[in-house]
């Protein structure tokens, strides 16, 4: 399946989904007024990709520094899609990056991870988070 690459804008994150190698990443900030315009293409691609993964290992990196509440809802949907796929046998490893002094992003990572039963979720503090 063809990669999904969308450049970051002032209010939306960089999307780099390399489906061939099973490495998906979201990087930057997300606070569009209409979250569905940003996350619609992401959901669509995942809906096509996830049923094809079987028991492959898929890496999903979240390197976000800020998102608004409607993006948080979209991220929650995304995590549910990933968890469902992991329940079906895919080995999905999520890394949630945050700057060491960023309690808000750390707390969001903890909040999201609490609902995941099948995905492997790593909270990763990094100095150079985007």
């Amino acid at each position: 399946m063809e990669s999904l690459k969308i450049a970051a804008t002032e209010r939306s994150p960089e999307v780099d989904f390399d489906f061939k190698h099973g490495v998906l990443s979201l990087r930057g900030e997300s606070y569009p007024e209409d979250a569905s315009a940003v996350f619609g293409p992401i959901f669509e691609a995942l809906e096509r990709f996830l049923p094809t993964v079987g028991n492959r290992e898929i890496r999903v990196d979240f390197d976000l520094t800020y998102f608004n509440s409607s993006s948080a809802k979209a991220l929650m949907n995304m995590f549910q899609m990933l968890d469902n796929s992991a329940a079906g046998g895919a080995r999905i490893v999520v890394s949630w990056f945050f700057a060491p002094d960023d309690d808000t992003m750390k707390e969001f990572g903890e909040d999201f991870s609490e609902d995941l039963e099948h995905v492997v979720f790593n909270l990763v503090a990094v100095e150079s988070a985007a």
Binding site: E33, Y66, S69, S70, D101, D102, T104
Partner: peptide, 16 residues
């Protein structure tokens, strides 16, 4: 940094 993020977040939600 924490305060900047909080103020910014409240500003964005209010403006939206």
């Amino acid at each position: 940094v924490g305060t900047v993020k909080k103020v910014f977040s409240v500003f964005v939600e209010q403006a939206q």
